[in-house]
Design a protein around this nucleic acid. Structure first.
Lengths: 246, 246
DNA sequence: GAATAATGTGTTTATTTTACACATTAAACG
DNA sequence: CGTTTAATGTGTAAAATAAACACATTATTC
């Protein structure tokens, strides 16, 4: 077989010092993290946006992001941004995708690693301190700064897929929730109506909901019972998926 | 509400020139793309690996990767690497995740965007020119250079999930395939035995397979019929998923 | 206390999935 | 060439799951 001497490859052919030279000099790129912070309120899926100060995007809204420090982990950067902007930590967070379009940032090449997080909008620790930051209905957003609309769409699609296969809805709700609230989350995110009786049956059959023997307070109708999600039981019993379905 | 002046954020507070300074100077990080190239042969899922030349990882195998050029799209870098190493283009490829662990590369901070691709190992265009590159059984790999074992595991898990919900198996097979070959792909990737009759029934019910009225050649037993996958029909008829299943 | 509006529950039907067995065909072998 | 072999190709019954559907109950409102 022919020996193929490909000088462009750094895992194989080059010496460490040659790589170090490369890594240290011209081949570096600015890296940012953008956070798609989802919340649920008024029976709608919301996303937290900040008004852009860049002239290029005057008046437009953008996701919350920041450059990654060269000695900072990616996850840490995402956690830092979330903490700075909302006061929250220990929230559900997941990396979505990395966007690196050449023209995506007016200041030059900035590759951005996207995360989405799910927060409970009623969390008492939640503090939005910057008055340029606001919640927006996800379904009403038609345009954002940078390529953030595309990033939002991708994140939303990922959320729609994941929420059907993982217990994410609970991260958007208070610890104690009614079945109606739970169903509202699913209906809002999936954009579909579901049968109330079958919905309940399904969740009771899963057996991950704990009846905490409390009822809703201050609702203008018969209060529903409140439940908690039992993550421990879920982790033990969750199904291994083997099937074909497309 | 209190105006929160957070100087660390670049979308909002800083001027473009300040951002440009930041982007141009200290905040840059080396970026690479790593390709997890999957193939299917001898009824096993394979991955293409190259022997590492780094002293740190002497004798270890690693994924195929390269630094991203500052004026190169991420997808283009992945396509370039694949083309360089296999001679193939127009293959199924998907971004998996970005890995940025501080200690992951001995030469310094290198953040890597991972893609996996699925190639038909019988493709007549396939040319592995570098004799340091070899196919490995995915299930036999216990260790790799860098954090590549973790990257492989993540990619494999993503493949396992995706192949159940998307028509990926066909990318690992020749255009014409028998149902037995198709089932072998699923069984190998999912690590599960399936009932042959139910498997066939399922795929015929989907109605995406085209009977091309040919049979296998050179098999040491009764030859099976060959089929093609009808991507056009799939795109039109694919189901919208709405359900809860975890 | 009557009207209202949402909660809470069960059954029937349809669909999907699983389990399972035998005839058919081409290759291999003597 | 006939027999053996090993894989292909097909159908049906049972079980599990999902979908459709209606009415009694309870707390609030008026």
């Amino acid at each position: 077989m022919i020996k193929h001497n490909d000088s462009a490859h750094f895992n194989n052919i080059k010496t460490l010092s040659a790589i170090q030279t490369e890594v240290k000099s011209i081949n570096r790129i600015a890296l940012s993290v953008d956070c798609v912070i989802f919340g649920f309120d008024e029976n709608k899926l919301k996303v937290l946006l900040i008004r852009s100060d860049l002239k290029t995007f005057q008046g437009k809204w953008s996701l919350l992001g920041d450059l990654v420090d060269p000695v900072e982990e990616l996850d840490s950067a995402a956690i830092r941004i979330l903490k700075q902007r909302t006061g929250l930590d220990e929230v559900y967070m997941e990396q979505v995708k990395t966007f690196g379009g050449l023209g995506r940032h007016p200041a030059g090449r900035v590759v951005t690693v996207t995360y989405y997080s799910l927060i409970n909008i009623q969390n008492h620790k939640l503090r939005i301190l910057d008055n340029e930051i606001h919640w927006h209905d996800v379904d009403d957003i038609v345009q954002l700064a940078f390529d953030h609309k595309q990033i939002l769409d991708t994140s939303y699609q990922q959320l729609q897929r994941r929420i059907q296969e993982h217990p994410l809805a609970f991260s958007l709700l208070p610890k104690k929730f009614s079945l109606r609230e739970l169903q509202n989350v699913y209906e809002a995110i999936l954009g579909a109506k579901m049968d109330r009786r079958n919905f309940r049956k399904k969740f009771f059959a899963m057996d991950f909901l704990v009846d905490i023997d409390e009822v809703e307070q201050d609702v203008p109708h018969r209060p529903g019972k409140l439940y908690k999600f039992n993550y421990g039981k879920y982790e033990k019993k969750k199904k291994k998926w083997v099937g074909i379905d497309f």
